[in-house]
Design a protein around this nucleic acid. Structure first.
Lengths: 163, 163
DNA sequence: GTCTATACGCGGATAGAC
DNA sequence: GTCTATCCGCGTATAGAC
């Protein structure tokens, strides 16, 4: 892995653990084993690097979800498989955790990966809900509720210190 | 309002807007119209002041919820009243937002107000769920799901930039 | 109780050598 | 591409005067 890749990967980890505002360039460099010069050669700023890292994290999470949502079984079975997926609740959601950070929300390029991920996920779940339950339910509303419940589950787990 | 009260109130506001890690003593002093000396006379540290502010915020939020949960109407009507309450979704939950901050979660005294608030709320909602639906539902599970859905709603609203 | 002075390292870069 | 040097203000206090 070259320096640029290590910088992105280290930033992904730190963004997940600490969030954007609390992650410093120095911490990124230390973890990546790269110097100041290297980091500022490949990226214009902390925000620039964070954009690259957050985009990649969002892509990875969408791919992980899609694997279950397009897996084997009926629509309902795939919904259940997604909901039952192993989650490290105390670590929080690598995407959703950033909704709490005003510096992320205020920067359109940093917020975009969050919005895109949740919009995509709600749409994808709504398709399966519609396939599973037909017109008996409001698919978009139920899909949004499912996503919200999972995200809120992280909040409750971390607040209680209990997965 | 004396200086001590202004410091606590200003800290409550800033914790809601910016979170714990991103709130500096200077920002608190500026908003409270108090000097360094005043702040460090009344509170030992930033963490000490944040504890006082977060405790008060949690108390206020519990009181606001209790007002609706013990209000007029049947158990079901009161649950609906709580769920329909006006929420400034883009500002986020003044309590739950801190679940994303590792410095809050790592400090037992800072995490306590979160845990206490959500534990209390889940219990209170479970009583109403049991009164409304009897043994047909798992009251504790449904209560936890309700709280999670509301918390997740804040995450989705802020991610989408749409209340 | 509040003010001012002082401290020291970190955050977030920029500059120029190699 | 990476390194080292340098910068300036902020974060988080402590000390002592008034």
């Amino acid at each position: 892995m070259d320096a640029r890749e290590r910088l992105v990967a280290s930033t992904q980890e730190l963004l997940w653990e600490r969030g954007y505002t609390a992650t410093s360039p120095r911490a990124i460099q230390d973890r990546a084993g790269a110097g100041q010069g290297s980091m500022y050669h490949h990226f214009a700023s902390k925000a620039d690097l964070a954009r690259a890292a957050l985009q990649r994290t969002a892509e990875v999470e969408r791919a992980r979800a899609e694997e279950l949502l397009s897996g084997p079984g009926t629509a309902l079975e795939r919904l259940v498989a997604y909901l039952r997926r192993e989650r490290d609740a105390l670590r929080g959601c690598p995407v959703g955790r950033h909704a709490a950070d005003p510096d992320v929300i205020a920067d359109a390029a940093l917020r975009a990966p969050l919005d895109e991920t949740f919009t995509w996920l709600r749409g994808r779940l709504a398709e399966l809900v519609a396939a599973a339950f037909g017109d008996r339910v409001d698919a978009a509303a139920l899909a949004a509720t499912i996503v919200a419940t999972v995200q809120g589950g992280y909040v409750l787990a971390r607040s209680a210190g209990d997965p």
